[in-house]
């Protein structure tokens, strides 16, 4: 059992509080660290990776402090978000160097390259790699010593769907094997596909924690606002408000549209086309007006 424990940890940069009194435990399996850009995910991962001192609180791995403890890296593998990685080396040279720095040899490096399926391009200079290839070589360098803990900062950025699936499969396998895998993302679908456990960070605060289904429900059950245009707005409004899935409707005269507030997302999405068809009303526009991730997250914070 390898567990990262973050205990009442804050981190500020001057007047800016990046991480605000967060307490969480990351255990074996795959955990997704979800939050909008700028929420403090990287700051938190940097503290877990020992590259940033907490301003207050502690970050430990199995009760051992991570900050200023280089021996901890025998247990931790890190895939940073930044691209820079000794571009003048070939992929193989880079992974071999990483293996050597762990006191391992070429064999470990070769195994890691095979795990990420980068053997075919291992003798090319890293400077010629695509973003996805770089990501996989970074991954190989982090896996070379078979760490108990793997920390990945936005690992799917810039990957094509096939590479994404491959990396997800790899992380899933590691999680199933009992390793502690933590990755950050600002994309809900990514996290949902991969992580059994989710930690949500919004504006430096710990907004939610737990099973993704529960969080998903929280996210989908919140009141949704839609902008609807139709061939007969008032008739549609009357029919919609009769159903309990709709909490309120405003007729926006300047926009020439209805602003609908739905409380039961699933039911409303089925109701709307049905009602329109039954009444012979044509739907011209149906667009969610608050679908941005930030609004989803701020709802979570309030929940």
């Amino acid at each position: 059992m390898t567990t990262i424990r973050i205990d009442h940890t804050s981190r500020w940069f001057g007047n800016v509080v990046a991480v605000n009194d967060i307490t969480m435990t990351i255990g074996p399996g795959v955990t997704g660290l979800l939050g909008p850009n700028g929420a403090g995910k990287s700051t938190l991962i940097n503290m877990m990776g020992g590259f940033l001192a907490p301003s207050t609180g502690t970050v430990t791995l199995d009760e051992k402090p991570i900050w200023r403890n280089e021996q901890i890296y025998r247990q931790i593998g890190i895939v940073p978000e930044r691209e820079a990685m000794y571009d003048f080396l070939t992929g193989r040279e880079f992974v071999v160097a990483n293996a050597e720095l762990h006191g391992l040899g070429k064999k470990a490096a070769q195994e890691a390259l095979a795990t990420v399926e980068m053997e075919y391009a291992q003798d090319r200079k890293i400077s010629t790699y695509s973003k996805g290839m770089r990501q996989r070589v970074k991954m190989a360098s982090a896996l070379v010593h078979q760490p108990d803990v793997l920390l990945l900062d936005e690992p799917f950025n810039g990957m094509d769907p096939r590479q994404r699936m491959h990396l997800m499969e790899l992380l899933r396998r590691m999680g199933d094997a009992g390793r502690t895998v933590l990755f950050s993302s600002h994309i809900l679908e990514e996290v949902e596909q991969l992580a059994s456990h989710i930690e949500v960070i919004v504006a430096g605060r710990h907004a939610a924690s737990g099973d993704f289904r529960r969080i998903r429900r929280l996210m989908t059950d919140r009141p949704h606002r839609y902008l609807v245009r139709s061939s007969d707005d008032r008739a549609l409004a009357a029919a919609l408000i009769a159903d309990p899935s709709t909490a309120g409707i405003e007729v926006d005269l300047t926009e020439g549209a209805l602003l609908v507030q739905a409380v039961d997302f699933g039911r409303f999405t089925e109701l709307l086309p049905q009602v329109a068809r039954d009444r012979g009303i044509r739907l011209l526009t149906v667009s969610p007006s608050d679908e941005s991730l930030e609004s989803v997250f701020s709802y979570l914070v309030a929940a």
């Binding site: 590259f51 280089e70 931790i76 990685m85 160097a97 990483n98 720095l101 360098s141 982090a142």
Partner: peptide
């Protein structure tokens, strides 16, 4: 970071 994330 690749040097620092090592037991070195």
């Amino acid at each position: 970071v690749y040097l620092l994330a090592k037991p070195l």
